[in-house]
């Protein structure tokens, strides 16, 4: 596979390390009322779609960026690639 790195262009997926569902960015608030339940859901339950999947890849043999890759799990077609940091900020993790 090739991952089209937003800064570096297409790079072989073997340079990356995979983590999993990009929902891992949305770590729950540790002080929330139902924090434990939320962390269990965050830690263990996955949509695991047979279609577009947003997922985290780390460019370990490259620039050490975490990326959010949107990829169709049935064809491996990659629809978009973003820096995870940008996604995290957009999803409100700046606070």
């Amino acid at each position: 596979m090739l991952i089209d790195h937003p800064l570096l262009g297409p790079r072989d997926a073997s340079e990356f390390v995979y983590k999993g569902d990009a929902s891992l960015i949305n770590r729950p608030d540790w002080q929330a009322e139902d924090a434990l339940a939320k962390f269990i859901d965050y830690g263990y339950l996955r949509d695991n779609p047979a279609s577009d999947h947003r997922e985290l890849w780390f460019h370990e043999q490259g620039d050490r960026s975490w990326l959010v890759v949107t990829r169709d799990t049935t064809t491996h077609e990659i629809k978009s690639v973003e820096l995870a940091r940008d996604v995290a900020r957009r999803e409100g993790r700046s606070k």
């Binding site: 800064l7 570096l8 262009g9 620039d63 050490r64 960026s65 820096l83 940091r85």
Partner: peptide
């Protein structure tokens, strides 16, 4: 810039954002 190196008095290359 990303994936580049250069410089005159000293040189440097891009490592990451």
């Amino acid at each position: 810039a990303p994936a580049r190196h250069g410089g005159k008095t000293l040189t440097a290359f891009w490592m990451g954002p």
